[in-house]
Design a protein around this nucleic acid. Structure first.
Lengths: 342, 342
DNA sequence: GAATTTACCTTGAACCTTCACATTCCGGTA
DNA sequence: TACCGGAATGTGAAGGTTCAAGGTAAATTC
């Protein structure tokens, strides 16, 4: 048997199709007795409104486009995974769904998202990984496609679109202070040149954490490409400059750095307790070093709220610019030590 | 100005809307000169067919549902990420798009997917993580929802739906042989109890690789929960039983096991060269141990081909049951040694 | 008792495309 | 001239929903 439609239901019930529609979309317009009768019949028939017909009429699909970014690094990579999961969940909670898109760059992403928007397949987009020269917000604004962004608009902080970002600095600052509390004074920073703005933010946290320490910070500040080996090399240099600890921009870098400390331990300090990483990967947990957590599970629902208040009328408004703090996951040893073979 | 439609375009061009439609969907029906004229106008006007209207008429959205599984473990987790990315890409190539769904269990996943199907939002589903007591295939079949599965239907290997799976055994077998070539004879296996069927498959590879070795395999065979610490504990037991090497069911387990070998090195064997992991995570690369790779980038396009031949007529048929080999990524030291602090 | 309001329900149109069929046009053949 | 067949193009309908405007009967007001 064919799937029931508004019309077939209405005929069976002896009411008009609009009444059935009202029972679903505007129940207060229908007398209670009728409403219940219709409801029950809908239930029994297993009727589900046709998404296509609804979309055609309302010009809304309740689908939003998101770019699935390629896997960068399996160590820190799970953050984006967590975010994607949280976003999907938050969207579902509000009756929306994410459609995924791949792209090899910003322009390709833009093309993919606007393409979906122009065919009416999606209502909006959720961006991530904002950067200073990000052309996406302006372009989307130009064509009138609604969107929100995970990450502040570095180029123009007063951009009109809603966004949620994480204050990377605060967690690193916390981490740096922890290292100081543990007795370190020459604490280096190993940042990743691959994430320009985010890295600057994290470095800022280290600088704040080092406030009042009488050291030459410039020579303790490293900027290297992402990767375990680079962390290793950077920490060797820092070690030679007398550093006994380091805050790192990623857990990969931290892993490399940690191995240097196991290679040439510093009297009185446990290696795992002399390193702070970022993104709290399972590796950090296993090796027992502290790491900074990004609360992406909180970011996603906020973004979705913002998005929906862009899309729908009469929803309670929400903050259009939110910065959430990162937090330190402090660990005390023991853990799994690492040392690079010489 | 309003978005152009078939009708508005047709009016401007002085042809019927069907002709414009034909230019898009069945160009061979339209005379070349007309076709070009229409094409050019379409181009200029920026016309994009309405997905909703098309879906309403054809009863197809070219969207497929997929479950976004929660992040299990950041070390091996990137495999599912890679798969998701590859699947998205493969779908896009054929004009399809993935919609994500979250679920806390199989039943919830089923409810989510069939829900989408019943409203006509998706045409089909792509399943992953099949298991012996998997109720999903039967249920989807019952309601007539098309789908394909990443993972063989363990319960009924001759199930009628198409699937692609990876032969986990072969890579582990290869790894085990590598360890033998390097001179090991007492080679343990540390499997993860969290992935029942997959684990059995990987263990099978180890058994095959050990063929002809005169050892008591039962006492070399460990089954523990997933996680670095469990790998560590298992390897300690294996070491005490005289094992000098191990093939592991996951890289997390391998990491833990490796650390035991650094803790108590075996004369003549390099620790990193005595461990084989699974899923070739960045950790394996950094620490320099060999690991088995799942070719998910090949799985995804195959699945998509299968799916499309389920959905569309007149597409060249393709194999409905495919098993791809996993392959060993063999590494020789040096790498980053690990040792668990005692 | 007539006029007005209210509550509830129905009708017609629109959304934009594609399907199935109808029509026109053309050169070629009987 | 009449007819035919095939290619190119046009027409009507359908698909399921929502919006806007209408209708009907009961309840209220004067």
């Amino acid at each position: 048997m064919a799937r029931p439609t508004l019309i077939s239901l209405a005929k069976e019930l002896g009411v008009s199709r609009q009444t059935v529609s009202n029972v679903i979309n505007a129940p207060h317009l229908v007398k209670t007795s009728t409403r219940e009768r219709v409801r029950e019949h809908i239930e029994r028939s297993g009727y589900r409104p046709s998404a296509a017909a609804r979309a055609l009429r309302t010009n809304r699909t309740k689908i939003v486009g998101m770019r699935m970014s390629p896997v960068l690094d399996g160590i820190n990579g799970s953050v984006m995974d967590r975010y994607l999961h949280a976003a999907t969940e938050a969207l579902e909670e509000r009756g929306y769904h994410p459609v995924l898109v791949t792209a090899s760059g910003e322009q390709e992403e833009l093309a993919a998202l606007t393409g979906l928007y122009e065919t009416g397949l999606v209502d909006a987009a959720m961006l991530a990984y904002t950067s200073p020269l990000d052309s996406r917000p302006a372009e989307l604004r130009r064509i009138g496609m609604p969107f929100v962004a995970f990450g502040r608009p570095w180029g123009e902080l007063d951009a009109p679109h809603p966004w949620v970002d994480i204050d990377n600095a605060i967690g690193v600052e916390e981490g740096t202070r922890l290292l100081r509390e543990r007795g370190h004074t020459r604490i280096g920073f190993i940042g990743s040149s691959d994430f320009s703005m985010i890295d600057r933010d994290r470095r800022e946290g280290w600088l704040r954490g080092m406030k009042g320490v009488d050291e030459n910070l410039a020579e303790l500040d490293m900027c290297v490409p992402e990767g375990i080996e680079h962390g290793f090399r950077a920490m060797r240099i820092l070690r030679d400059r007398g550093a006994t600890a380091a805050a790192c921009g990623t857990d990969s870098l931290a892993l490399g750095a940690l191995s240097v400390l196991y290679e040439s331990p510093v009297e009185g300090f446990h290696p795992a307790e002399s390193i702070v990483g970022f993104d709290d990967s399972p590796v950090a947990a296993a090796l027992g070093f502290s790491s900074v957590i990004q609360p992406v599970e909180e970011v996603a629902p906020l973004l979705v709220s913002q998005l929906i208040s862009e899309l729908e009328d009469d929803v309670e408004p929400c903050d259009r610019r939110v910065v959430l703090p990162s937090v330190l996951r402090a660990r005390v040893g023991p853990g799994l030590p690492v040392r690079l073979r010489s």
